[in-house]
């Protein structure tokens, strides 16, 4: 104890800082920031399951986690990089409709969903580069236009999508997943767990990103585009990546919604849904979601 005090007084500032850093480093090593987030989400998902009295609550809970997932994608784009997209319902609905349509052509549901996610990511990659040259209101308008276009295609091509009436989603039931490991859950419960698990993974990934080299670049662009460039950050490329990542989140959420609901309508791709997602991100997540999610 006495020995400790002497060293401390010998170099008060240095030891204090080093100890702080050391502590921080070891804590980070012990559990990655994303793992901590995952555990917090796991507890929340579990808590829900403990208190929900009926299938209705499970269904609402499922929607909550699906929205959480889509909004996490928006937070990556808006909170990390500072880009507003009013077209993410478009990516969401691409995920949803691909998951709904492909099983009618003999593709198994999980593969259909994967295809929808990849399709949304590919579209975001192709469209992102030119669109992301814009910023502020112009970007908002351009993404809004993209969302509307996707929505129009889906509501017009009735032969494929059922048009404005929507379509039923055949195929997979999450119950079977749990049956394989010997658990007998109701369908609503099974989807709740799947959605909660996916949201937890999504949040963990977003938190990992925030503290990583790529994430720092994104946050730098948020604060000063010109400084980010001066440090060698390829701003166009970084923005495009964030756009694709957030589109993937939206599409996974869309695919899950299609499967969990067993029914899908063009409204999921409507403008209002895009606005809802951004609103939820602004109200539900602070500008830097990582600051809240990974706060020590």
């Amino acid at each position: 104890m006495a020995g400790q005090e002497t060293t401390t007084s010998a170099a008060p500032v240095d030891t204090g800082r080093d100890a702080y850093l050391q502590n921080k480093v070891t804590r980070r090593r012990a559990i990655g920031p994303g793992l901590g987030t995952f555990l917090v989400f796991a507890v929340l998902v579990g808590l829900g399951a403990l208190i929900f009295p009926s299938s209705y609550f499970y269904r609402v809970g499922t929607l909550v986690w699906i929205n959480t997932l889509a909004v996490t994608g928006i937070v990556v784009l808006l909170g990390y990089v500072g880009l507003v997209s009013l077209g993410h319902a478009g990516f969401f609905t691409i995920g949803a409709y691909t998951t709904a349509i492909l099983p009618n052509y003999g593709v198994p549901s999980p593969l259909a969903m994967l295809s929808g996610v990849l399709l949304a990511g590919l579209l975001a990659l192709v469209v992102g580069r030119p669109i992301l040259k814009l910023s502020g209101y112009y970007l908002a308008i351009a993404t809004l236009g993209l969302g509307m276009l996707i929505w129009m295609v889906l509501s017009k091509e009735a032969w494929l999508t059922g048009g404005p009436d929507g379509m039923t989603v055949s195929g997979m039931n999450a119950r079977n997943l749990f049956k394989m490991v010997g658990l007998n859950l109701k369908s609503a419960e099974a989807w709740y767990w799947v959605a909660g698990f996916t949201a937890a993974i999504g949040a963990a990934i977003a938190v990992n990103l925030a503290g990583s080299p790529s994430g720092r670049s994104l946050r730098a662009i948020h604060d000063s585009d010109v400084a980010a460039r001066s440090l060698g950050i390829d701003v166009a490329r970084a923005k495009s990546r964030a756009f694709v990542i957030s589109a993937l989140y939206a599409a996974v959420a869309g695919g899950l919604l299609a499967l969990a609901n067993g029914y899908i309508t063009p409204e999921t791709g409507g403008f209002m849904h895009s606005v809802e997602m951004v609103t939820m991100a602004v109200l539900g997540g602070p500008p830097r979601c990582s600051a809240r999610w990974s706060a020590p």
Partner: peptide, 16 residues
């Protein structure tokens, strides 16, 4: 952030 050019990790390992 200034270390960006020296950092070699790829996006996937950053995400995971």
């Amino acid at each position: 952030t200034g270390c960006h050019m020296q950092e070699k990790s790829n996006l996937l390992s950053d995400l995971l």
